[in-house]
Design a protein around this nucleic acid. Structure first.
Lengths: 335, 335
DNA sequence: TATGCTGGTCGAAACGTTTTAGTCAAAAGC
DNA sequence: GCTTTTGACTAAAACGTTTCGACCAGCATA
């Protein structure tokens, strides 16, 4: 109820409001003695700066918006944790938006961000709203793309090379002796899924195989464990079990694993299995899962650092399109 | 850059700023013809209300703070998804804070929330900061406790009965023929862990067993899969494998499962296993996991509804301490 | 002694809304 | 036909900061 304002602090410390503001924002500008007097008044009165008033006058807030595709996916959760970490270190608050892959929902999130006059936006675009993002930029809100390489050079982005990832996975399967490989994926309209496929095909070509022969695509509509299990059942029912299965994410792979084991197919003896993302649960499954690790947490951290750098040093800031490299983590499922 | 204000909209529509504000906030108060004229001006100019200015003057923002203990835990993720859903429906933005179980970090989050003058706070307390929460309330910021029953009647809380949950788990194990049961848990200073133990003991007592005899506690410092596996290794090494294992959460249970299978112990033939939370991965593990389901998503939704009701209808609002009941989900691991 | 600096502080004008009291014309009540 | 009421709108005062020019004392320079 009783919100103490900067004026009351000023009165108690016997200075002007402007001086209190200086203590808050540029302590070095005010004399030691008055500073400590003001600080005491702040403590005594339990003063807390009014963020809205502050950002109204200052022209910018200390918040960033984060829009993710699926807060339930450990991949995004890890990213979010990294974002929150950096933002918190720098005194920024994170406004969370979950687009659920829905373009309209994502648009609503962006509107909320715009209303809050966030300092910047971190977004894994669900698709279709790239023009909206440019509008945000025109409004002076910086945008960093997360897990999505920027097409243009005038913006920052942070991503992981999915083509390399796909190659890593398939090369490993080939080295382990696989002949026919199934690629279990989500919709190929999802960039990540498509890129991983490209990588897989390149690895096959590099090994002298014909991708059209050696690789079978199994596209599911969702990318969760249920879909993975359905894919397993399908492969088994149709009697065309491959030597190895490459799943576009770990949730699919875990479902696949369960489906295979359930039908008495042994992993890795009968079928090799590799996932993608290396979520925590990948190592905890009954047959621990070989996977492609992405620096998820790092992704979130770097994206946020880039964003805040762009905010705090607008003229010295150089846009960067950071591309991380994925890493193969070998475990029981291909061993 | 070019932020259009309400004044410019007013000028273009040939009305006063106050009228534009009315169109925004109480459209029914303004005549049809002017309203549509103003709305057109808003669209033409791409006006977006300045949240800070709005909340400065109005005295309250349209944001809520959410402080969770571990954003990496699917339990909290599901809660957060529910929160985000309701908040978004009602036009509120969610400010996310991750306390990592750290009291200082939690305190920092609360400070950020206070600065942002959030309308309310949703928090799963990490411990020790309950006085700080009262301070928030004095400042007029409503607080709803999440997964933590309120001790006093003057506040809202949403929780799930962990005693019942513990009883459900152990009753089920007893019915399945278990004699000696191990309870693998995190620190018993965590309320949830302690309550689940209490429930377990009650179930034993109700079945005429002596809890001191039939139940062995194995307390680990962390509640993740790694700890679960360590617990399994410990039980096996010491040669005191029980008939059944009750884990205080699914992460522990998944680790336990892996540890047992790895050592050639069959689940459920040799040892029955039950977890807690029923996270998605529980059903996707190689031996699907019997677990205690909590209405996680619901928890988040109801907590947010309660909070926003308290904010929007301060006088008619009745504080509620909602207690949900957990549910036993039987799967292969006890079958 | 006059002049220019400098470090420290002050006062007041913003920032973009919301809200309250007030204006004014037209409709309604008697 | 006069007052009241109503409906639609306006003008201006807040809300709590930040920032900018002004100010002033003290000190060094000339």
């Amino acid at each position: 109820m009783s919100s103490v304002s900067i004026k009351e602090v000023a009165a108690r410390a016997g200075v002007s409001p402007g001086t209190v503001s200086n203590v808050l924002n540029r302590p070095e500008k005010v004399a030691e003695s008055t500073r400590s007097r003001v600080e005491k008044a702040i403590r005594d009165l339990g003063f807390v700066r009014h963020g809205s008033a502050s950002s109204l006058r200052a022209g910018h807030s200390r918040t960033v918006g984060l829009s993710v595709i699926d807060i339930g996916n450990p991949f995004f959760t890890d990213v979010a944790a990294g974002v929150e970490e950096v933002a918190s270190e720098r005194g920024y608050a994170v406004i969370l938006g979950n687009s659920s892959g829905d373009r309209l929902k994502e648009e609503r999130n962006l509107l909320v961000f715009a209303e809050q006059r966030v300092r910047g936006v971190l977004i894994t675009p669900a698709g279709g709203n790239l023009a909206k993002l440019d509008q945000l930029r025109e409004r002076g809100i910086n945008v960093v793309l997360v897990d999505h390489p920027a097409e243009r050079a005038d913006q920052c982005s942070v991503a992981v090379n999915d083509i390399t990832g796909g190659s890593l996975a398939v090369s490993h399967l080939l080295a382990a002796g696989a002949g026919r490989i199934a690629y279990v994926t989500g919709p190929l309209t999802i960039r990540q899924c498509a890129d991983r496929l490209t990588g897989a095909e390149r690895a096959l070509a590099a090994a002298g195989r014909d991708p059209g022969q050696a690789l079978e695509e199994v596209a599911m509509s969702a990318m969760n464990a249920r879909s993975g299990q359905q894919a397993a059942e399908k492969l088994i029912a149709e009697g065309r079990l491959p030597d190895a299965v490459f799943c576009a994410n770990d949730l699919l792979a875990l479902g696949m694993l369960r489906g295979l084991l359930h039908a008495g197919v042994r992993v890795p003896q009968d079928v090799l299995l590799i996932g993608y993302d290396d979520i925590d649960f990948a190592s905890a499954s009954a047959v621990s899962l070989t996977s492609i690790r992405q620096p998820t947490h790092r992704l979130g951290r770097v994206a946020t650092e880039l964003l805040l750098d762009e905010c705090d040093n607008p003229e010295s800031h150089a846009h960067q399109q950071v591309m991380f490299q994925p890493e193969l983590i070998v475990r029981e499922s291909t061993h």
